[in-house]
Simulated scan of single mutants.
Amino acid sequence: MVTWPWQRARPAGRTLRLRSRGDFGDVLRVDFEELAPDVDTFLGQAAYLQLGYFETLSQLIAPTPELSHKESLTRAAGAALIKHRELVAIVRDRGDDPLDVMLPFREPLDAFRRATHGARSLETMLSVHITAGMLDDFYLALSASYGTTGNRVAQILGEDDDRQALVGIITDAIASDEEWRALLALWGRRLVGDTLLIARAALRPRALDAAEEKRVEPVFTALLAGHSRRMAAIGLDA
């Protein structure tokens, strides 16, 4: 179980909502009262997640033999690094030290990366595609709670992530060896629990009451629907 280190008070009246259809993703708009994290938590997590995806993808480049696959991994890693740098720029514009803002989340998010790192390169590529997709959706939903800062984050997270290059590598592998399909389908299903824990922990560091659980449910239903679509697009069962 990941232990999250922040215990900050949250300003009254903060609202978390999923954006309307047509903004970012295909999820229904849902409002929450006082469940969104403070802005430093929001920015620190989002920035460190992107740094983690850059690190994970970069580590896959050297052992990958095919030049075209190396180039695809480089593009996806570069996109994550650009997003990390742009999120860090927002932190600096607010007058904060990015290292201080990200540091509380280093240990739990590194643990998350280890838990979702596959034994094989294709599993790890699928991990990045699936977990980053789900958490991008979640942080885009959170961004509606932070005014101008949230709008800037939404713009960054909505930029091209070049992860379709990873999908191409995965689908090519499945086409060449059908055994990959069952293995990767199982791995994709295993990723969901750890990823949803990260999202739930971002809302509030305590157990939600029954009313809050009811309001949260549509958010996670939407995240699971997005996961199913990503898996189906690869030809895998969610």
Rank of each mutant, 00 (worst) to 15 (best):
R92N: 09
D26F: 12
R75Y: 13
L73Q: 06
L60S: 07
V27C: 12
K70T: 07
R92A: 11
T41L: 01
L43K: 00
Y48F: 12
L28W: 07
H69F: 11
P63I: 11
V39Q: 09
D38N: 07
L49M: 11
L51D: 02
D38W: 03
D38H: 03
K70G: 14
A47K: 01
V88P: 00
A76M: 04
L28S: 12
T64A: 08
S58V: 02
S68E: 15
R19E: 14
A47L: 04
D40P: 00
Y53D: 07
P37I: 00
A47Q: 01
D23I: 14
R92K: 14
G22E: 14
T74G: 11
Y48H: 04
V39W: 02
S20P: 06
S58F: 06
R85Q: 12
P65I: 04
A46H: 07
Q50L: 04
S20I: 05
S68T: 15
D31Q: 09
E66G: 08
P63E: 13
T74A: 12
Q59S: 13
V30A: 13
D26W: 13
F24G: 12
Q50P: 00
G52W: 00
A36H: 02
A76K: 06
A79T: 05
A46R: 02
Y48A: 01
P63K: 06
G44H: 03
T64H: 08
D23T: 15
L28D: 15
F24M: 15
L87N: 08
L81M: 10
R85C: 09
A62N: 07
G22M: 13
Q59D: 14
H69S: 10
R21D: 10
